[in-house]
Design a protein around this nucleic acid. Structure first.
Length: 201
DNA sequence: CAAACGATTTTCT
DNA sequence: GAAAATCGTTTGG
């Protein structure tokens, strides 16, 4: 069962980030279907969040898609190399988003290995926002695409994540955001091998 | 028009 | 553990 607009268009982006854990992210690009269970997310709370591209109601061509109604993808290029995938939430003109940082591979393993130029399945295949996007074939050209489309969507699974299996902590790579860098907006599934490791590896 | 800067990953020491 | 790779977006002149 696919997540619908009512899931994305809610107000509490932190709550949505937490609920996305255990859901299945599916892409259908180039006739290849790939998917994975979401195991790590981060919330970006729009205009009041210094770590967000939309902080202070900054509105540019790149961030414009975050101001649309929830239920679409926001993809941007980071460090000139990595395509980072976000889910836009809340209503129109409220630029909230959830960064999907890692998934556990489920469908299309061969396709993902090929895209990542890897031979064997290791957590590094999809652990981390840049790696995950590459494995699923997500690029900046997909920014603004609907998550209710056949090319990319998120669906419910039988995997139920209990409150005790969710770990929260500060976000990764946002030290420039000063006091907001400490907010517990990062969520991941306790003990999952495919969760990314900040710093030490 | 020029220049600095990342919501990162990989590779080398 | 440190550093390079690499480029679109944003900001300043």
């Amino acid at each position: 069962m696919i997540l619908t607009e009512s899931f994305y268009r809610r107000e509490n982006v932190v709550q949505i980030a937490k609920e996305l854990l255990g859901k299945l992210l599916v892409t259908n690009f180039d006739g290849e279907r790939t998917s994975g269970i979401i195991v790590e997310t981060e919330a970006y709370a729009g205009v009041s969040d210094k770590a967000s591209h939309a902080f202070g109601a900054r509105r540019t061509k790149r961030t414009e898609v975050m101001y649309a109604s929830g239920g679409i993808a926001y993809v941007y290029l980071c460090y000139g190399i990595h395509h980072l995938f976000n889910v836009v939430t809340n209503d129109k003109d409220v630029p909230h988003a959830v960064l999907i940082r890692a998934v556990e591979p489920v469908t299309g393993l061969d396709t993902m290995l090929h895209r990542r130029k890897k031979e064997v399945l290791l957590p590094a295949l999809t652990a981390g926002p840049g790696a995950m996007s590459e494995a699923l074939g997500i690029k900046t050209t997909h920014s603004g695409i609907s998550l209710l489309s056949k090319e990319i969507f998120i669906e419910h699974t039988d995997t139920v994540i209990g409150e005790s299996d969710i770990v929260c902590g500060p976000r990764v790579g946002v030290s420039y955001a000063q006091e907001d860098a400490l907010l517990p907006y990062r969520f991941y599934i306790r003990g999952n091998r495919f969760v990314s490791r900040p710093k030490t590896g």
